[in-house]
Design a protein around this nucleic acid. Structure first.
Ligand SMILES: [Zn+2]
Ligand SMILES: [Zn+2]
Ligand SMILES: [Zn+2]
Ligand SMILES: [Zn+2]
Lengths: 131, 131
DNA sequence: CGTTATGCTTACGTGAACGTAAGACGGTAC
DNA sequence: GTACCGTCTTACGTTCACGTAAGCATAACG
């Protein structure tokens, strides 16, 4: 079970990823699990970050893109310039996401329309065949 | 200018892609431009498809994913089984997109919250520095 | 206490989506 | 007519995001 810490396997089961993936993300500085000896211990922070990573991936962002916005989600509290940069980047990213939402709505509308056309084609074909 | 047909360069300028990309998409059967001699001539159909391709990419779909739903957008009118398959796949894809929309809304909400926190951290730091 | 599972590092391999370089061909400009 | 531009094909190179295999350490089980 997992209270404070989780092993790599428990993380993999929970998020449906492979150990290789988690090690790779650590190498890319997207995750930073604790260690006991040399075994990784994943914390609540890692779980929150991984959730954000996987979400970002589903929207087509690169790991490098994601790494940059992750810094926004837990900035160094006594590094004011970094916080300001993170906020600026986050604001930019927010605009991106809202733009994406418009596109997504449009894509959904288009697809719905296309499905209607498809349904019409099917019923027309069946009516024709029934003559 | 571009009436009915467009050269590869005109397509590239219009969609901000490289010739290599358009040739690659043709090779993968995502586009099928006409030819005059061996020069490609892109039609309205190609432009519509390319728009869908680039949209799909922005949402993290693979070219193979995209190729499958493209078939939905201009199915062979007298191939009923294909139309039915396309509709089924399109319905599935629509569910995907609606799921994505939920996730996207959540991401936007999260990011907004984080920006508020960031702004608070900044104003707090400035108030502390002003003492 | 030995076997087995889990985890580690290191390193080479892989598939997707193009980039890039080389060489050839055809229209256009001067 | 030739210099040049745009386009073509062919083919090897590259980046990203992991997969996979080898060899070794340690924890867990019976
Ligand atoms: Zn457990
Ligand atoms: Zn990087
Ligand atoms: Zn033109
Ligand atoms: Zn394919």
């Amino acid at each position: 079970m997992a209270g404070k810490f989780m092993t790599i396997r428990e993380m993999c089961d929970l998020f449906d990823v492979t150990p290789r993936t988690l090690r790779f993300y650590e190498q890319k500085e997207l995750l930073a699990p604790e260690r006991t000896g040399n075994r990784r211990l994943f914390t609540k922070r890692d779980r929150a970050r991984l959730k954000l990573i996987l979400r970002g991936k589903r929207f087509g962002f690169s790991l490098e893109d994601i790494r940059q916005i992750l810094d926004l989600y837990d900035p160094d509290q006594n590094n004011l310039p970094q916080i300001k940069r993170a906020c600026k980047l986050g604001t930019q990213r927010l605009a991106d996401l809202e733009e994406r939402r418009k596109e997504l709505d449009e894509a959904i509308q288009d697809l719905r329309g296309q499905l209607v056309i498809g349904a019409e084609m099917i019923s027309y074909a069946q009516a024709t065949a029934a003559e």
